[in-house]
Amino acid sequence: MIALGYTMVYGVLQLINFAHSEVFMVGTFAGLYALKAMASGPEGGIVLAGVVGTAMLAAMGASALTALGLERIAYRPLRNRGAPRLSYLISAIGASLFLQNLLFVLTPIGGPAPRPYPNVMVRRTAFTVLGYSVSNQQLLIVATMIAMYLALDRFVMASHTGRGIRAVAEDPETAGMMGVNIKRIVVVTFLVGGLMAGAAGSLYGIYFGQARFDIGFIPGIKAFTAAVLGGIGNIRGALLGGLLLGLLENLGVTCIRSDWQDVIAFLVLVAVLMFRPSGLLGEAVRG
């Protein structure tokens, strides 16, 4: 889901939003405090669904706001001046460091130590397939991911704005000549990327039970890897890349050792960049 955010923004702007992992991080914090406000212990049934749903929405909102703020403050001024692409990268890294450190020094909210999530959704086995147990949390994550992906795919492929997004991604100048307000499309793109990252952030928090200022780093880079593996700029590719990367990581964990998980993810990134930089479903680089 984080990979979708990278891919969307890249597709439209040919820009890697390296602060996207912090958009995700803000989502884990927002999810945490929304959950805390509503419940302190385990819940079940309708209440659980309502609480988790609301927390997810809160996280989506907070992440979307962060993403919009990033676009407004870190990117739009550069775009208006027609800055070279390296400037965007530096601006993104700056914004990313700023957000991390902001959560680091804001001790009432963040701080250096991890903040625990309330244990609202007790992990238990939902069902077993071929001897592997699938927990209720994993089920929630997979179901949300599929729902989000389908919604995004419909939005981009079938809606009026989605058509505008695709046109800007293919040829911004011509899209403008056809009456597309490019600024608006860019804002919508960041918004959608933020919503996805927020949902992912709150799920991540529920699953791993904590939020911390630097929590976005590893998932962020892995999502970037997934997006690159699938072919950056390609929404279906991001999904495929995410699935494949997860499979490869777990294969590695099973065949080698569990602490190799991250090593494998980055080996995949390096290998894709070396041998197939356009990714699996990627387009050839435009001249």
Binding site: A175, G179, V180
Partner: peptide, 20 residues
């Protein structure tokens, strides 16, 4: 010409009517 190469002919035509 600058048509959108990966969009269908229908979507290309719809793009012309984007502002309407």
């Amino acid at each position: 010409r600058r048509i959108f190469p990966r969009m269908t002919v229908r979507d290309n035509l719809e793009m012309g009517a984007y502002a309407r």
